[in-house]
């Protein structure tokens, strides 16, 4: 982070202060941090499931979008649908596209890395088309879907802020994800398949099924992230519905070392950076896009340190 400031010739001390103020100084700042944290937490947990099972899901963005689309489509069809039903639809939307990509890898040998990337772009164009066509609000000229009525939206805690109950759901899901991955046999199977498919197979597990299951969970969580953004914040979807939340899932998950509790911490950190960098951009010459640089550098440092300590361990072991 300090490195980034120096590269762009920003004063280190005051930049820090601006970021911290933007992230934590008052009720509004804290709620901004938490609101930015929520989608990253869910998508980050989603990525954790897939990557732990050895499935390189890069399609968080597409799954996020498909989640939002499924929710908006349900609302279009059944305007009285309550928010929990909308959220369920978003889970299914994300899940379908993720399982499709997983199935392509297992059955047709299409590398997941490539299929999920391609699906991201297809989903993005599909979103564009849907918002300008079938899902478009007939009132108003902009390509946005119909706005949800207040009654279908998630509960807001405070009128001044955007903070909504979705943040609580996300935290609960993260805790459940920890219990599932580390304290149940199913979670153990997912981790084992990711680490050593052969051992898993020789213990009569079905790696393909387990990996597809992990992709389903992963997609459902990314879709849900889209859903919570839709039902909690925006109330309608448009072309810029996903602000890279799905792409950011990967650095969030990696920085949290693919551990649900770690992901909570890293999503909170990134959420604070988001809120803070907006503040920084407002009061200094910096651009808020420097946040991507900070994230990239953080990920590289974390994985490099991890590797370095592992190498030292094996060296000691060999001696």
């Amino acid at each position: 982070m300090i490195l980034t400031f120096l590269i762009f010739g920003l004063p280190v001390g005051s930049s820090f202060r601006l970021i911290a103020e933007g992230a934590f100084s008052d009720k509004i700042a804290i709620s901004r941090t938490l609101v930015a944290m929520t989608p990253m937490l869910l998508t980050g947990i989603g990525m954790t499931f897939a990557w732990r099972a050895g499935m390189y899901n890069i399609g968080g963005e597409g799954q996020f979008i498909c989640g939002g689309l499924a929710g908006a489509a349900l609302f279009q069809a059944v305007p009285s649908a309550p928010s929990w039903l909308l959220l369920l639809a978003t889970c299914i939307g994300g899940m379908l596209i993720a399982v499709f990509a997983g199935w392509l890898q297992i059955k047709r040998g299409v590398p997941l890395v490539i299929s999920t990337i391609l699906l991201n772009f297809i989903a993005l164009q599909f979103l564009d088309w849907a918002c300008a066509g079938p899902l478009k609000d007939p009132v108003g000229g902009v390509p946005l879907s119909k706005r949800l009525p207040e009654t279908s939206m998630l509960l807001r805690f405070d009128r001044q802020t955007d903070l909504h109950s979705g943040t609580v759901y996300a935290l609960v899901i993260a805790a459940l994800a920890y219990i599932f991955l580390f304290l149940t046999p199913e979670g153990f199977r997912i981790r084992l398949v990711g680490q050593n498919t052969r051992v898993a197979r020789s213990n009569r597990m079905k790696p393909n099924q387990i990996q597809l299951g992990a992709m389903a969970i992963s997609g459902a969580l990314c879709g849900l992230a889209g859903g919570i953004e839709y039902v909690g914040i925006s109330g309608q979807i448009g072309t810029s519905f996903s602000q890279n939340w799905g792409f950011l899932a990967i650095p969030v998950a990696l920085l949290g070392s693919l551990h649900p509790l770690g992901v909570i911490a890293s999503a909170l950190y990134f959420g604070a950076l988001f809120a803070g960098c907006n503040n920084l951009a407002r009061y200094s010459s910096a651009q808020n896009s420097i946040i991507y640089i900070m994230q990239a550098v953080a990920v590289l440092i974390v994985v490099a340190l991890g590797q370095w300590s592992r190498q030292r361990e094996t060296k000691v072991h060999n001696e």
Binding site: Y56, I58, F247, S289, Y292, I293, V297, V299, L300, V303
Partner: peptide
């Protein structure tokens, strides 16, 4: 290091750098 991980970081880095 894992190539997918590093590549993802490089993409983020380049996006942030060029935008800024």
């Amino acid at each position: 290091l894992d190539q997918v991980v590093v590549g993802t970081a490089i993409n983020l880095f380049a996006m942030g750098l060029t935008n800024s």
